[in-house]
Simulated assay, not measured.
Amino acid sequence: MYRQEKEEQKSIVREGMEEYLDQTFGFGTAKIFKTVFDAEGNESYLVYLPQYEWFKAPKYKWFDVYSKDNSFYHCEMEA
């Protein structure tokens, strides 16, 4: 039953930013940390991706995800 619920969650159609994150990083792995608006009214998102190693605390990769010309782009940020 648990497996069936997980499969049903993956089959939900997601649009916009969530769809881009799922396609780029895998379903549900990347988390939106903060939404930022610039002076021109454009939205960008600060996104983190946890990476787990055996018996170690997770390391995080940070990305800036933004939309431009009705498409989404991302770039990795240095910590």
Rank of each mutant, 00 (worst) to 15 (best):
W62V: 08
W62P: 04
G28K: 07
N42R: 06
A30H: 01
A39I: 14
V47Y: 00
Y48L: 09
I32M: 10
T35L: 12
Y66S: 03
A57H: 03
Y60G: 08
C75F: 15
K34V: 06
A30L: 03
Y45C: 02
G41R: 02
T29H: 11
Y48F: 12
G26K: 04
D38Q: 09
C75T: 12
D64H: 11
K34E: 12
Q51S: 15
Y73N: 10
P50Y: 02
K68E: 12
Y60S: 10
E76N: 03
D38A: 04
F37M: 14
Q51K: 08
K56I: 10
W54E: 12
V65C: 02
F37W: 15
Y48A: 04
V65F: 05
D69P: 00
F63K: 01
K56Y: 13
E43M: 09
F72C: 05
Y73C: 08
G26C: 05
L49P: 00
A39R: 08
F33R: 14
N42A: 11
Y48N: 04
Y52F: 15
T29C: 10
C75S: 10
I32R: 06
A30E: 02
D64S: 09
D64V: 07
F33Q: 15
H74C: 07
P58M: 01
T35E: 15
A30D: 03
Y73D: 04
Y60P: 01
F55W: 14
G28Y: 10
Y66A: 05
V47H: 00
E53F: 12
F27N: 01
K59T: 11
E40C: 11
K68M: 13
K31V: 12
F63N: 02
K31D: 11
W54L: 14
I32E: 13
N70L: 09
F63R: 02
Y73R: 06
P50E: 03
S44R: 00
E53S: 13
L49Y: 05
V47T: 01
K56F: 12
E53H: 04
K68T: 11
F72L: 05
L46W: 07
T29F: 15
A39H: 14
F72M: 02
K34A: 07
V47K: 00
E40I: 13
W62C: 10
N42H: 08
G41P: 00
F37Q: 15
F33N: 14
Y66K: 04
Y45S: 02
N70D: 15
F37N: 15
N42G: 06
Y45G: 01
F72H: 01
G28P: 00
F63V: 04
Q51R: 09
D38G: 05
L46E: 06
